Simulated assay, not measured.
Amino acid sequence: MSDESEAWHMMPVAILAILWNLAGCADYVMTQYGVAPYLQLFTQSQAEYFTSVPAFVDGAWAVAVWGGLLGAVLLFLRVGVAPWILGFSALGMTVAAVWLIVFATPGLTEVAGYFGDAMIAGAAAMAILFYAYARQMRVAGEI
């Protein structure tokens, strides 16, 4: 597409997606490596909970944050595979959120309250929205 017909919102959304996913990647790295100053932001039970999730949840979380960052960068660069990558990211975040809220014992609500539920559900919603946006831009021929 020429610059004249370019969707005005594409770059701001892509930049927002990059920043959002960078924050998710930072959270993932600091949790995985047990960065003490970061984990001290949580109660001891919350820190233990987030650092001891099952491997498949860790994997879904990794796909969510790293796939989200890659997909956001590809969206910024207008690479056609961006919706696919963001879709896998959304799937990973949704799997992690559903497991933490519904299937984990103890559940996220017991450990972090309804605020924790809202945070993880909001992260999943953002991942889905970024996927839906990228897909719409692909359908519209913007990427």
Rank of each mutant, 00 (worst) to 15 (best):
N21S: 09
A26F: 14
A23T: 15
L16M: 14
I18T: 00
L41H: 10
Y28M: 08
Y38C: 03
Y28C: 06
C25S: 12
L41R: 14
G24Y: 10
W20L: 15
V35K: 08
P12R: 00
A36E: 14
A23I: 15
Y28Q: 02
P37N: 05
T31G: 08
F42H: 06
T43P: 01
P12E: 00
Y38E: 07
L19A: 15
A17T: 08
G34I: 01
T31Y: 05
V29T: 13
L22K: 06
M30C: 13
C25P: 15
C25F: 10
I15Y: 12
C25W: 10
A36H: 10
A26C: 11
T31K: 03
Y38I: 01
V29Q: 07
I15Q: 10
Y33L: 12
T43Y: 02
G34P: 02
F42V: 02
L16T: 06
P12W: 01
L19P: 02
I18E: 03
M30S: 11
V13W: 09
Y33D: 02
T31F: 07
Q32F: 14
F42G: 02
A23H: 10
W20R: 07
G24V: 05
L39K: 01
A14V: 00
Q32G: 14
A36D: 13
L19V: 15
V35P: 11
L22C: 14
Q32K: 14
V29G: 12
I18G: 03
A26Y: 15
V13S: 04
V29M: 10
A36S: 12
Y28K: 00
V29L: 13
Q40F: 05
G34K: 03
Y28I: 01
L39C: 03
L39P: 01
L41K: 13
A17S: 14
V29A: 14
V13Y: 04
P12A: 02
A36R: 12
V35H: 12
V29F: 12
W20D: 06
Y38W: 09
N21V: 05
F42A: 04
D27F: 13
